[in-house]
Design a protein around this nucleic acid. Structure first.
Lengths: 118, 118
DNA sequence: CATTGAAATCGACTGGCATCTATATTGACA
DNA sequence: TGTCAATATAGATGCCAGTCGATTTCAATG
């Protein structure tokens, strides 16, 4: 649950080695991203104007059973990449931008290395 | 092998949904990052001044067998995060910064969402 | 050319994960 | 309150992945 807090304290990979605890927490998040279905789900939610996506819309986008989609949503939620809110009969998921931002920062290159000539 | 090329063509997650092929390629890389041992290995290599790390140094940093470390290095190499070079009896691994950079870009938030006030 | 040390490959074991079907829960509404 | 639709949970199954010990490959060097 405190994945985001650990992410906030983890230095970029290029700065210093991760300690065991940091590596475990960060790996949990990347593992969640390490499935093509979850990546597509995340990109659907993250790119949706308005920020919200109903579960039924996500399910329609895949050729998978409803429980399977529900499982993937749960995984993404558990690692802090998504949140959900129920309104009436429907559940809406939205991105947690902070978590994605921390991950991006973790992978950021130092300015020198970022310049890639030719 | 063309993982880097697909990464280069993949839009940020917040921009538009990934297609099936992009998601598969990107997931391969994130799956490689989804193991705490590999994350630590990567951070050791990425943060090393000089850019190079000998396998023996990596092995020493873990309480795992040499074949296990070798296996993890192979995984990181297969997804384009590391390269290796043999010199004399030793093999040196170094980071492929482009791949890390592409991943970071993939997770980048639009400027508006990136501003996270306390 | 034999030996030694570094690293990779092989084969086996085991635990975990993606997926499914079936069932439960939740909320709306007649 | 009973039914229906949307999600979540439970349980089962088949496969993949992390780890190990044993072995092989490769290069240096005596």
């Amino acid at each position: 649950m405190e994945v985001l807090q650990i992410l906030e304290c983890s230095p970029p990979l290029t700065r210093e080695p991760l300690d065991v605890e940091q590596a475990a927490a960060v790996a949990r998040v990347f593992k969640a991203l390490g499935d093509p279905v979850r990546l597509r789900i995340l990109s659907i939610v993250a790119s949706r104007a308005g920020g919200e996506v109903c579960v039924c819309d996500i399910t329609d986008a895949f050729d998978l059973s409803q429980p399977t989609i529900s499982h993937h949503l749960k995984v993404l939620k558990e690692v802090g990449l998504l949140t959900s809110e129920r309104r009436a009969s429907w559940v809406y998921y939205r991105l947690v931008p902070e978590t994605l931002g921390e991950l991006s920062a973790l992978l950021t290159l130092p300015a020198a290395a970022a310049a890639v000539p030719r």
